[in-house]
Design a protein around this nucleic acid. Structure first.
Length: 212
DNA sequence: AACTCGGGGCA
DNA sequence: TGCCCAGAGTT
């Protein structure tokens, strides 16, 4: 996929998902960070439902620590991995208070040192909350990148670097939403619905299915 | 590299 | 009813 095609591809996906919001609904760096920690191996709808109630009670690290692990668990036990996530969210909040005066740090090393925060989560926060040129690569984006030819790489880091290098800066911040929605609902792992894809001519996937 | 956490969504 | 998931940590 040429660089001109990369831009066209991204713009077509953007047009396809005009209402993409996803992480943007979380208005502070802290609620964004917690929401993304909770989102691991879970669906966005279940996380949004849980965080809506949770953030009513605790939208700051101080309130989260006061709520405690058992309190947090009450709000998030409808999503998977809730024990570990409750533990991580409270521990992470305590560290924010102790090390960063309750603020979310804008540096990768600091973010990834927090419990429950890995490279993908750090990249979402850096991109959305701190407007840095990063890309959060999950399973959907990894598959879509390699399949379509948008970003070829043998591991997540390689795909991330390719995306940051190739996606135009003005599109980088929002492209995460468009890519992940496209990967989730159209460019699916099994039975991709290529006939719904707005960019079959640009895609390099050799096994395209152009009719239902 | 393999294993674990985990309730819910979906075929 | 079984398989898989908007990852991260441990072994």
């Amino acid at each position: 996929m040429s660089l001109a095609e990369v831009r066209e591809f991204i713009e077509l996906l953007a047009k396809e998902n005009p209402n993409a919001q996803s992480e943007l609904i979380y208005t502070t760096p802290y609620t964004l960070l917690v929401a993304v920690v909770l989102s691991a191996q879970a669906t966005d709808a279940s996380v949004n439902k849980a965080t809506e109630k949770l953030f009513e009670i605790a939208s700051t690290p101080q309130a989260m620590v006061a709520l405690g692990e058992d309190g947090v668990a009450q709000y998030i036990n409808s999503i998977g991995l809730w024990r570990a996530k409750s533990r991580n969210v409270v521990a992470l909040s305590a560290q924010l208070i102790e090390l960063y005066k309750g603020e979310v740090p804008g540096k990768r090393e600091a973010l990834e040192a927090l419990p429950g925060v890995g490279r993908k989560t750090a990249n979402v926060v850096l991109n959305i909350a701190f407007n840095q040129s990063t890309m959060a690569v999950d399973t959907h984006i990894f598959r879509l990148g390699n399949r379509t030819g948008l970003a070829i790489g043998k591991d997540v880091l390689a795909v991330e670097k390719a995306l940051v290098r190739r996606i135009p800066k003005d599109l980088l911040r929002d492209s995460h939403h468009w890519l992940i929605l496209h990967g989730r609902y159209i460019c699916k792992a099994r039975k991709p619905e290529c006939w719904r894809c707005p960019a079959p001519k640009i895609c390099h996937y050799p096994d395209k299915i152009l009719t239902p």
